[in-house]
């Protein structure tokens, strides 16, 4: 039987562990530069080496994101990306791939506007496995129950500022995996320091058995490899988003093959992780 939701994420990490590998989680904004191109990119990510796919849901005011993902969100909104269209993309992806976990990542307002319960139900029915909602800390609980009831994962973030006494409060209701933000800052800016990551991951691991993915600031195969020593998975986002923007002219017109360009980088980073 084919698993879904939290189960599908769990199986993914079990398989990675068995193979003694660190997973690669790829983040790309849905609809950047167009829905058609990003649908294409998503369909090729698993084969290129992505173990888990994170689909960015664009928001007009992405407060935790750096310039690369800000620009990407604006391009996606300009191309007409909506929550419903993103769910349709996932539905299409699931026609060809029932193994790779799909996580939606974004900000709360578009989901709140769609209707939390309806969104979770619709997402579950098309094959979404979990959510990372950047501006929904564990204190704001309104998505937790619907997500749990649907058998999906609400993935919480930890950060270098998440002090020891707070870690249990953050991980208590987490499922799927923990997303550790490796740097103080927004996405895609500074590179993380390995020493701090090791220290942070150790203190988080003392409170949870969930796998830990590390993200923010990882751009190259070398960095991915260094961090794979400590992490169960690494998240790469801005680097792919930059690849997409390099394929566009100043007016946002596509002048180069975004799909190949992103897929090549996924392969490179995967190589780095496997070395």
């Amino acid at each position: 039987m084919i698993s879904k939701g939290t189960e599908r994420i769990r199986n993914c990490f079990i398989n990675l562990k068995r193979a003694e590998k660190t997973g690669l989680i790829t983040f790309i904004t849905a609809g950047d530069p167009t829905l058609e191109i990003s649908t294409n990119i998503f369909s090729q990510l698993p084969q290129a080496g992505a173990d888990i796919i994170e689909i960015g849901m664009p928001f007009s005011d992405p407060m935790a994101d750096g310039p690369a993902i800000q620009a990407s969100s604006l391009r996606a909104l300009k191309s007409g990306t909506t929550c419903s269209k993103i769910l349709k993309m996932v539905e299409k992806f699931r026609e060809q791939d029932e193994i790779t976990p799909v996580i939606l990542m974004g900000y709360f307002n578009p989901i709140y506007t769609y209707g939390v319960e309806k969104f979770v139900a619709d997402a579950s029915s098309v094959g979404v496995d979990g959510f990372i909602i950047v501006d929904l800390p564990p204190e704001e609980t309104e998505m937790r129950i619907p997500v749990e009831d649907a058998g999906l994962s609400l993935i919480y973030l930890t950060s270098p500022t998440t002090y020891n006494k707070r870690v249990p409060d953050v991980v208590r209701n987490a499922s799927g995996f923990i997303y550790h933000v490796s740097v103080l800052g927004i996405t895609g800016t500074t590179a993380p320091s390995n020493k701090n990551i090791e220290k942070d991951l150790n203190r988080i691991r003392s409170h949870t058995d969930l796998p830990i993915a590390v993200g923010f600031g990882i751009k190259t195969p070398e960095q991915a490899r260094e961090i794979s020593v400590y992490a169960d998975a690494v998240v790469v986002g801005s680097a792919f988003v930059n690849k997409i923007s390099e394929c566009l002219d100043i007016d946002g017109k596509v002048i180069d093959d975004c799909v190949i360009s992103v897929v090549d980088l996924v392969k490179d980073i995967k190589c780095g992780l496997n070395n």
Binding site: M63, V134, P137, E139, T158, T161, T162, V181
Partner: peptide, 20 residues
């Protein structure tokens, strides 16, 4: 205590900022 006025208010921020 959690900063809500009815359904309004709250603390919708990234984890990095929650501790501060």
């Amino acid at each position: 205590e959690s900063g809500h006025f009815g359904i309004f208010g709250g603390r919708y921020v990234a984890e990095t900022l929650m501790p501060i």
